[in-house]
């Protein structure tokens, strides 16, 4: 990510002399040595990403923070989506069909 400046333009160096070091390590312990590898490591975690997106959609849809009581429903949505390789519109449909959405 360090290869991108503050407005997202590509850079190899900070100021002509200093080379950008875009290496690092993810919290799961995997390390990366470039922006490309970093991106790969994020993509690799599809289940985590889907869970994250599901939670953001739910929060947006119902106007409250989620809590531990919502966990089973979220697990179910994420499970369905991954198992059946569903799409983004399906995800919106699953959110709407969930108990979290239909109940208050």
């Amino acid at each position: 990510m360090e290869n991108y400046d503050a407005i997202g333009a590509w850079r190899e160096n900070y100021n002509r002399s200093l080379k950008v070091d875009s290496s690092g390590q993810m919290p799961n312990g995997k390390s990366f040595s470039s922006s490309r590898e970093f991106r790969e490591l994020v993509i690799e975690q599809e289940d985590v990403f889907i869970r994250c997106l599901t939670k953001k959609l739910l929060t947006y849809a119902i106007g409250r923070r989620l809590n531990s009581g919502d966990r089973p429903e979220i697990d179910a949505i994420v499970g369905d989506l991954l198992e059946e390789e569903l799409g983004l519109r399906d995800l919106v449909q699953l959110v709407v069909a969930s108990e979290i959405f239909l109940r208050n």
Binding site: M1, E2, Y4, D5, A6, I7, G8, G24, P27, V42, Q45, V48, F49, R51, C52, L53, K55, K56
Partner: peptide
């Protein structure tokens, strides 16, 4: 550009802030 600019502070970038941003927005 949107993602990279929203995760910077307008002047410069910080691996820390970008890191947290990615974690929070994409990785739950």
């Amino acid at each position: 550009g949107s993602f990279l600019t929203a995760s910077a502070n307008g002047v410069d970038t910080s691996p820390v802030i970008r890191g947290i941003y990615v974690m929070n927005k994409l990785l739950d």
